[in-house]
Simulated scan of single mutants.
Amino acid sequence: MSLSIMNLINEASPHFHGNASTTKIMGAVCLALVPTLIAATVLYGLAAPLLVLVCISTALVSEHLCCIAMHRESTAGDMSCVVTAMLFAFTLPANCPFWVAVLGTAFAIVVVKMLFGGIGCNIFNPAVAARVFIMVALPSALSAYPDVAGKPLDAITGATPLAMASAGDMPYSYLDLLLGNHAGALGETCIITLLIGYIFLLAVRVVDAWATLPFIGAVALISAFAGQDVVYQLLSGGLAMGAFFMATDYTTTPMNPVGKIIFGLCCGIITGLIRFFASSPEGVAFSILFMNMFVPLIDRITRPLPAGGVKNALI
């Protein structure tokens, strides 16, 4: 059967487009983070949503001003900067000074995202990079975390479960860790709400589990090898938020399943090594940031060959 030349498509791919858009995808991520925001509000009071609001406002203004300076149409409305702001806010304690939140958010948007060209062009995950920036530049801002159980935020501060575990003390039950009944950052306390949000993103096919499961599995194996309580380690710190929401970022993680598996495994290995064999009790942010650098190489190594194609050298 002959095909009319008029039916041929003579233009660059993609030839067919889905209904998904950046705004819809980022809106779904924001919606998935709402349960954790509600849990943080219950645990820490109004300081939690206020901190998130400060970060979101800073992100919107920073991205809009960057677009003006770059003589580009504003991209602040695509919701990507809101996702970055919420994720960064979730790495902070509820008693974090607002000026620190503003500084970290501005760093994430201006330096890590917009200077590289905006969404889709940044090498590093902006929220993770901002967390590491604050950890290095202003460690005192992350040195004390408010306790819960209705106590005033400035009345008592406690160490996080991971910090206590590294000192040989594990006073929290698994249920405490699941419900967030302990000191910690906004997004590393209530594991149940993080899981609910992640399952929602899986259900609407915004994310997949190719990087998440190897990430968590590698941490579990190293925890067992190091003689640690595996369940305690998996439910503590920023592992859940990092594996569910940061290791699934479209821009800063590999594109195909094999690459994502390699990325997740390496993140988990580095996280475990830092937790048990370094001076820091937490390693999620450092592991993700470190592996972000190797995403182009991983993509090149794991790129599927077209039919009849010839594999090129890595360099």
Rank of each mutant, 00 (worst) to 15 (best):
M1P: 08
M6W: 09
N10V: 13
A12P: 15
H15Q: 11
F16Y: 12
S21W: 02
T23Q: 08
T23P: 09
T23I: 05
K24H: 12
M26I: 09
M26Q: 08
G27E: 05
G27V: 00
V29T: 08
V29Y: 04
V34R: 04
L37I: 15
G45W: 13
A48E: 05
I56A: 13
S57V: 11
S57Y: 14
V61D: 00
S62W: 00
L65A: 03
C66S: 02
C67W: 00
C67A: 03
I68W: 04
R72G: 05
C81Q: 05
T91S: 10
P93K: 03
W99F: 09
A106R: 02
K113D: 03
G117Y: 01
N125W: 02
N125M: 02
A127P: 12
V128A: 10
V128Q: 10
A129W: 01
I134W: 06
I134D: 02
V136C: 10
A137N: 04
A141M: 12
S143M: 07
D147T: 13
G150N: 08
P152G: 15
A155M: 11
T157N: 15
T160I: 11
Y174M: 08
L175I: 15
D176I: 13
L178W: 14
N181K: 11
A183I: 13
T189F: 12
I192D: 09
L195C: 07
A203M: 12
W210R: 12
T212W: 05
A226I: 07
Q228I: 02
Q233P: 07
L234E: 04
L235M: 15
S236K: 15
G242R: 08
F244I: 00
T252V: 02
P254Q: 01
V258S: 03
I262E: 03
F263E: 01
C267H: 00
G268C: 01
G272R: 04
F276V: 13
S280L: 11
M291E: 00
M293R: 03
M293A: 09
V295T: 15
I298Q: 04
P306A: 11
G308H: 03
L314I: 11
I315A: 14
I315L: 07
